[in-house]
Simulated assay, not measured.
Amino acid sequence: MSRPPSFVPPAGVRAYRLNTARGAFAGLEAAPEGPPRGTALLLPGFTGSKEDFIALHEPLAVRGYRTVAVDGRGQYESKGPAQDEKAYAQAELAQDVLAQARAVGGPVHLVGHSLGGQIARAAVLTDAAPFASLTVMSSGPAQISVSQQQRVKLLRDALAVMGMADVWEAIQAMEAPEETATGEIDAGLDDRDDLRRRWMGNSPAQLVATGRQLCTEPDRVAELAATALPVHVLSGERDDTWPVSLLDDMAARLGARRTVVEGAEHSPNTDRPLQTAWALADFWDAL
């Protein structure tokens, strides 16, 4: 589960509702002081939210870019059906992204983290016209690793028989405390209430449907390469969801720009936000 540094928007970042032809989505937006060099649309991953990008807005604004991060349908503060899994089919979520891009105004630099990367890819394959580029962040060519598939299956099985609050408590009981960079144990108590509130905002049907997608996603790299859209494959130097070597190979197949953020794991946007922001801006500047 990603852990943003804060759920409170910093100065210069506004929370708002992005109104689109497919409904309203909760968003966070920041803009540079002068005319923007471009606009980026940021899509979070599985169990994540727009806050996962909260530390990227300021440095990207400094580099001249307007940024809009959104909760997808059924994620955190964007409402969605609680029981209708068909509402969260990948094709439906891709259409949401296309509507968001049109509402934001383009051409848009599209960025998707993990699950968000695969939804972003589906949007581009549906219609690449609204996009100036695609960055897939810690998001691989096909289904997630076997170990992560097992974790997602446990979650889906739990959601079939338990409520969201009970599943949250079970997750907390199973997760080991994290170790900080100094070797100390961080129990994560300071942000536990925020993380629980985000979890409770998710639609169970969205988690089940998108979890299934992560476990069954086919390899569509050749299709993406055929669009000729500029692609950036960005990741940390360690990742247990998609092995880094697999991401290296995907980048080679795409002829894509490749960035490995030192000291980061599956969420470079929260692990090393400044380095991640600079890598994104360098890619966009080069276009």
Rank of each mutant, 00 (worst) to 15 (best):
P5E: 07
P5V: 09
P9A: 15
P9M: 12
P10T: 07
T20G: 02
T20C: 03
T20W: 03
R22Q: 07
G23V: 04
A24Y: 05
A24M: 04
G27D: 08
E29H: 11
E29A: 12
A31H: 15
P35A: 14
P36A: 09
A40E: 10
A40D: 06
L43W: 02
L43R: 00
P44V: 04
P44F: 01
G45V: 15
F46Q: 00
S49N: 05
S49M: 07
S49Y: 02
F53E: 00
H57I: 10
H57M: 13
R63F: 00
R63M: 03
G64I: 00
R73Q: 10
G74L: 04
A82P: 00
Q83L: 11
E85A: 01
K86W: 10
A87I: 07
Y88W: 03
Q90L: 12
A94R: 01
Q95M: 04
A103Y: 01
G112D: 09
S114I: 09
G117C: 12
I119C: 04
A122W: 00
A123C: 08
L125H: 04
A128E: 11
F131H: 13
S133A: 11
G140L: 02
I144E: 14
S147F: 03
A158P: 00
A158I: 01
L159C: 04
M162T: 07
M162K: 10
G163W: 09
V167R: 04
A170V: 13
Q172F: 01
P177M: 06
E178D: 11
E179I: 14
T180S: 13
T182K: 02
G188Y: 08
G188D: 11
D191R: 10
D191G: 10
R192V: 15
D194R: 00
R196Q: 15
G201A: 11
N202L: 04
S203H: 05
L207K: 02
T216G: 01
D219P: 06
R220G: 08
V221L: 02
E223M: 10
L224G: 08
A226K: 15
L229S: 06
P230L: 01
P230C: 06
H232V: 06
S235M: 14
R238A: 12
D240A: 05
D240L: 02
S245Y: 02
D248F: 08
D249F: 04
A251H: 03
A251G: 14
A252W: 07
R253Q: 13
L254Q: 09
A256L: 06
R257I: 01
R257W: 08
R257Y: 06
R258W: 08
V260L: 08
V260E: 07
S267G: 00
P268F: 03
N269V: 10
Q275K: 12
W278S: 13
A281L: 00
A286Y: 10
